[in-house]
Design a protein around this nucleic acid. Structure first.
Length: 853
RNA sequence: GCCGGAGUGAUGGAACGGCAGACAUGCCGCACUCAAAAUGCGGUGACCGCAAGGUCGUGUGGGUUCGAAUCCCACCUCCGGCACCA
């Protein structure tokens, strides 16, 4: 009792105070350059770890920590394995929010952006993230965006960039949008949520559809299955055939005009009872009969204006009008009427379809509504003559073509091939493949982006800015005139230039590039952010990329993550890099939502500011809590109630290390070894537990199972607590367990472990060295091995008893021990089990006893 | 509608086809304290039972298996993606 008094009152230890410890170590690490990567060091294995760079919106919230904290732990874990880890960071600094803020606040978007970046840098440092700040990339700097322009010119030369006029998606706030930046059935803007309209505009595109097939292959990539599925669906490859119909002569036109349709079901060609063109189809105007013109033009107009409104309704009624012309089915010479309808899309396939109502639900609906004939051409035996109540689109093995002249009786597959072959011989059709993927529209009508390096000259037309004239700089001053109009369009100093070819007065392109261009190659630039002679350092790119591990959210599945793949392939084809893919391994962490279950945003007022939490708990507690709250790929609503738990855990770690002999006054067992346990046995048990923990924790780090990693360290700390104050506390086994414990915790909670490590070194008179430069310990298998084990015994699958047997016991030996159990004997009541199953090498025994009678 | 993913205590979540609920949170009790906080210890799926113990239990219903949270089939609910793609 006296001793108890002594250790609690006399040896009172200093309190765990993260707020004083953490900034001190952060400064120290920075002074030491602990996280600066020597990119030229080839003596160690390289590990390029990339995390999606943030948009500097200014409100770094707990969600950012959720992405970065485990990523940082991965970096530290790999460094402890002797790898040369490169963990860079930068800022996705162009974009609309800066402009909106600037318009509202009357300042330059650059000011707002840079202020936010400064704040985010501070916040990232405060969490102890080991980014290599020397590699930082800020995309709104001319040093960066000039290379966007350079890439554009290379792609232009190669025919991968082009300008064309077409109907594009237009957001009233953001201007034009790429296809994948329009979301939802109501077609709203991915960024601001505004309703998207249609406009006919001359715009710049990148020919990414050239890569559609290659993008479908994920060979050699370790990516989450859902992302691969989403990209595959987005690319949307469809195999089928193109079939050329011709128009029939009529009073208003001579006929013979070819109209090519795309179909995935050439086998149903005999069932085509009408044809539908997209309202925007180029032949609509010339084919329309005079008496139909008014109706057709009205429909075309309505289709344009009404698109987004009509689409709001999920149960859209099919609409359309006949244009007063017929097409001729090439396979049987039949005349079928031509309609226009907005359910046929101008941008997909050929913008024209042959309608087969018997075998396509949309065509069926249209035919029903307009009273058009429906002819069955595929049927299973017995169903040939049944009434057609719905489109038959299934594929049954016994189905055959019917009503298809000489092709009747063939299977759908055979028939389709035979019909395409027959058409092919006559030059009327061929096999064809189409994709949903569209070329990437990169023009944006905004100021705060990369100027597209193009000059329009009345004499020489579209003239690229010569490479030596790059960068085309954004003007330093900006006049928003209180509107959302792109200020570049009325900036005379920017607009007026001389034609690079003939020196004539000419005008600059005022559109800027989609900000997704910036993020399509930034990780290459990290390797040489200051390089002046080119976008990348080829030697470093060849040694360091592709990126070994990329971490970030899944919301970019068909945007950034697809653009990045496309860009790398385009770079490769220009001889700039040699790799096919940018990111070998991808991990999508989940998303932290507000406490209300909604996306965190300032406007909803559900944002958790990490600064507040640091003051209360310190960065290590927050880091650990974010890793502990659940599987990393899951995310979930923010609920801070558990932070107290990990904070308590770190406090316990603190006092276990600094005060191993403390005895709890209120607990009579405290300070004693468990009954019957010798010092030697206790030491061995503790050491074995530490090595088992090491084995499991190592595997968890490797698999990114951070929640169970923390749980296992908690278990070990609970065990240490049990031995605290006992005869083995502070002894050899204890100290080794503590050493392993700190090393295992170091990647996750870097500050407290560094502090405790330094105190341990000081206590033993050794010179200081950082725990983060230690080598990850190795598991000693002989220590982990146990001499006995507990075996559960089941009777008919239900656990009835547990026995302890020698670790090596199996077979007859184990069986005898099982049958000797009094509980089991009682349950068996003298009967013999019908079967004895030893599962998993004797880990569990199941006795099968058949019911009596 | 189509394509993904997920359903386990009051809560977050553990669990190579083999002891369901590790580790935490919350709650209850105890110790320490004049008291509170902090800390430590114990309890905590439901039902029956004084207890020993038993029965039920991983969204629902079937199936495979000696044995299913885990595999298969059907369905329900929630989350994410797509939006008439011929």
């Amino acid at each position: 009792m006296t001793q108890t008094q002594d250790s609690t009152t006399r040896h009172r230890i200093e309190r765990y105070d993260p707020v004083s410890i953490e900034p001190r170590w952060q400064r120290r690490w920075e002074e030491l350059g602990l996280h600066r990567t020597d990119l030229g060091d080839g003596s160690r294995p390289r590990y390029y770890l990339l995390t999606m760079y943030p948009y500097p919106s200014g409100d770094l919230h707990i969600g950012h920590w959720y992405i970065v904290t485990p990523t940082d732990a991965i970096a530290r874990f790999h460094r402890m394995h002797g790898e040369n880890v490169f963990l860079p960071i930068g800022f996705d600094a162009f974009g609309l929010p800066a402009e909106n803020a600037a318009i509202k606040g009357g300042f330059h978007p650059r000011e707002w952006t840079m202020k936010n970046i400064e704040n985010m840098r501070r916040q990232f440092r405060s969490m102890g993230a080991t980014f290599d700040w020397d590699s930082e990339v800020v995309t709104c700097e001319p040093d960066y965006y000039r290379w966007n322009q350079w890439f554009f010119l290379q792609f232009l030369k190669a025919g991968l960039a082009y300008r064309t006029k077409s109907t594009v998606d237009w957001c009233p706030n953001d201007g034009t949008l790429a296809r994948e930046q329009v979301e939802g059935a109501d077609r709203h803007c991915w960024r601001c949520g505004a309703k998207v309209e249609k406009r006919d505009l001359d715009q710049w595109y990148l020919r990414v559809t050239d890569y559609a097939d290659e993008l479908l292959s994920f060979d050699g990539l370790d990516w989450p299955e859902p992302i691969k599925v989403m990209q595959t669906n987005w690319i949307g490859r469809s195999e089928g055939g193109e079939i050329t119909f011709s128009t029939a002569p009529s009073e208003h036109q001579p006929g013979g005009e070819p109209i090519t349709v795309f179909t995935t079901r050439p086998d149903t060609l005999f069932g085509a009872t009408f044809m539908v063109l997209a309202p925007e189809h180029p032949l609509v105007n010339s084919l329309t009969a005079p008496d139909r013109r008014a109706a057709v033009e009205a429909y075309v107009e309505r289709a344009r204006a009404a698109t987004e409104i009509e689409r709001l309704s999920t149960e859209r009624e099919k609409t359309g009008v006949a244009i007063g012309a017929d097409a001729i089915n090439p396979v049987n010479g039949e005349r079928i009427p031509i309609f226009i309808a907005d359910y046929v899309l101008a941008g997909y396939g050929t913008g024209a379809i042959m309608a087969v109502p018997a075998h396509d639900e949309r065509d069926f609906e249209f035919a029903t509504r307009f009273g058009l004939p429906i002819r069955r051409v595929v049927a299973v035996p017995g169903a040939e003559e049944a009434a057609i109540e719905t489109a038959y689109v299934a594929h049954a093995t016994d189905e055959r073509l019917v009503n298809s002249d000489r092709f009747s009786g063939l299977t759908a597959d055979q028939g389709g091939r035979a019909i395409v072959a027959w058409l092919g011989e006559r030059g009327l059709g061929k096999p064809a493949v189409t994709y949903r993927l569209r070329d990437w529209l990169i023009s944006r009508q905004r100021y705060w982006g990369t100027p597209i390096p193009i000059i329009y000259c009345d004499v020489h037309g579209i003239v690229p800015v010569p490479e030596e004239d790059l960068p085309v700089l954004l003007p330093a001053t900006v006049d928003y005139r209180g509107t959302g109009v792109n200020p570049l369009t009325h900036d005379e100093a920017f607009l007026n230039v001389r034609c690079p070819i003939g020196g004539e007065p000419a005008r600059r392109e005022t559109d800027t590039m989609d900000t997704f261009v910036d993020s399509s190659w930034y990780w290459y630039r990290y390797l040489s952010p200051e390089k002046a002679g080119g976008p990348i350092d080829r030697k470093l790119v060849e040694t360091w990329t592709p990126v070994r591990q990329y971490t970030g959210g899944a919301e970019h599945a068909v945007m950034h993550l697809l653009y990045a793949r496309e860009w790398t392939k385009m770079m490769r084809d220009q001889g700039i890099v040699t790799q096919d893919e940018p990111f070998i391994r991808l991990f999508n962490q989940g998303q932290i939502l507000g406490a209300d279950g909604e996306r965190m945003s300032k406007s909803r007022g559900n944002v958790q500011d990490p600064d507040d939490l640091i003051v209360r708990y310190g960065a290590d507690s927050i880091r650990l809590f974010l890793m502990f709250m659940g599987p990393w790929d899951q995310g979930g609503p923010w609920n801070p109630t558990g932070i107290g738990g990990v904070n308590r855990f770190l406090n316990r770690v603190w006092s276990l290390v600094l005060d191993p002999h403390r005895v709890e006054p209120g607990n009579p067992d405290s300070g004693r070894l468990p009954a019957g346990e010798t010092e030697a046995a206790a030491g061995a048990a503790l050491l074995a537990a530490a090595h088992r923990t090491l084995r499991d924790v190592t595997a968890d780090y490797e698999a990114f199972h951070f929640n169970t990693m923390v749980a296992k360290l908690m278990e070990l700390s609970n065990l240490l607590s049990r031995y605290r104050g006992s005869a083995i506390a502070g002894g050899e086994a204890w100290n080794e367990a503590i050493r392993l414990f700190l090393l295992m915790l170091a990647p996750a909670a870097p500050h407290i472990t560094e502090e405790l490590w330094s105190r341990r070194l000081a206590a033993t008179g050794r010179p200081w060295s950082s725990i983060h430069r230690e080598t990850w310990p190795t598991v000693d298998a002989s220590i982990v091995a146990e001499s006995t084990r507990e075996v559960p015994i089941q009777v008919n699958g239900k656990v009835r008893d547990r026995i302890t047997v020698p670790a090596a016991a199996t077979g007859a030996e184990l069986e005898a021990a099982v049958l000797a159990s009094p509980k089991i004997q009682a349950l068996l009541g003298g009967r013999n089990p019908d079967r004895i199953i030893e599962a998993g090498g004797g880990r569990l025994v199941n006795l099968v006893v058949k019911a009596e009678g």
